[in-house]
């Protein structure tokens, strides 16, 4: 081996132990992900080494090439264990007489599908746990809570939201009654109240104030507009 410093292809930097040489190449190729720069370092290393170190370096590089794949697979396994990948499902749902075809995450509730995917934000998210009734919609004509309905379970059914009540510019009688009887203050619970009220009248539970209150008990109003809401329902029921 000639390590003469006069040889321009063997600069002094590389006249170190083979171990250090390998270490430098290892660190450099690990640090620099770009192929071009990696290639340049590899070439310079080859040019300054013996046949033995050429084999060593080749072996080390081959090991390096194999490493990222297994590391990546391990990373994916660990990731899938802690963060399971989402699963999607294709759905067709009729909302306000319009068929919608969506591919939704299986976890999507009908409420989130309406608000986040279809931009039908009239339906409100209150507690998201089925206690406040702000998310009430009709499925096949019956009032249900969209926050506890998986959109996959609503597939193929007829959904009516607050957006589907009015006939063009003409408000639904219940919407009109809520305006006339001051059935709301802040208005956040109102879409749910109106959907519930429409169903309440349809079910015929409007014989007394007590009955209306009992059958509207699934809709909470923090403003306390209950008297106006009961009045609105009585007004529509009387028609």
């Amino acid at each position: 081996m000639n390590y003469s410093p006069a040889n321009p292809l063997r600069p002094h930097f590389f006249v170190v132990s083979r171990f250090k040489q390998l270490l430098v190449i290892f660190i450099v190729s690990k640090t620099l992900s770009k192929d071009l720069s990696k290639g340049l370092y590899v070439i310079s290393a080859y040019m300054t080494s013996s046949r033995r170190s050429f084999i060593k370096i080749s072996g080390a590089l081959a090991a390096l090439a194999a490493l990222p794949k297994s590391v990546k697979a391990l990373y994916q396994d660990v990731k899938n264990f802690f963060v399971p990948p989402k699963q999607t499902i294709p759905l067709t749902i009729n909302i306000n007489k319009t068929p919608y075809r969506v591919t939704a995450d299986t976890r999507t509730t009908l409420l989130d599908l309406l608000r986040e995917e279809l931009q039908l934000t009239g339906t409100k998210k209150g507690c998201d746990h089925g206690q406040c009734g702000a998310c009430t919609v009709h499925i096949n004509g019956e009032r249900v809570l969209s926050c506890l309905t998986l959109s996959a379970q609503a597939a193929g059914k007829e959904v009516t939201t607050i957006e589907g009540l009015a006939n063009g510019d003409k408000l639904h009688p219940m919407q009109q009654a809520f305006i006339e009887c001051d059935g709301f203050q802040c208005g956040y619970c109102t879409p749910g109240q109106i959907m519930s009220a429409v169903a309440c009248v349809k079910e015929g539970h409007t014989k007394s104030v007590a009955e209306i209150k009992e059958f509207m008990s699934g809709n909470l109003c923090r403003c306390g507009a209950y008297n106006g809401i009961v009045e609105s329902i009585q007004k529509v029921a009387a028609v």
């Binding site: 976890r107 509730t109 998201d128 809570l145 506890l148 998986l150 379970q153």
Partner: peptide, 26 residues
């Protein structure tokens, strides 16, 4: 198994129930 969903979906939202698969039995 999921039927109405009024209990299970609520429990799943609170990370109390963590099923890997749901079977709709409605």
């Amino acid at each position: 198994f999921v039927a109405g969903g009024t209990n299970l979906v609520d429990l799943m939202k609170k990370h109390i129930a963590q099923p890997e698969a749901l079977i709709d039995v409605t």
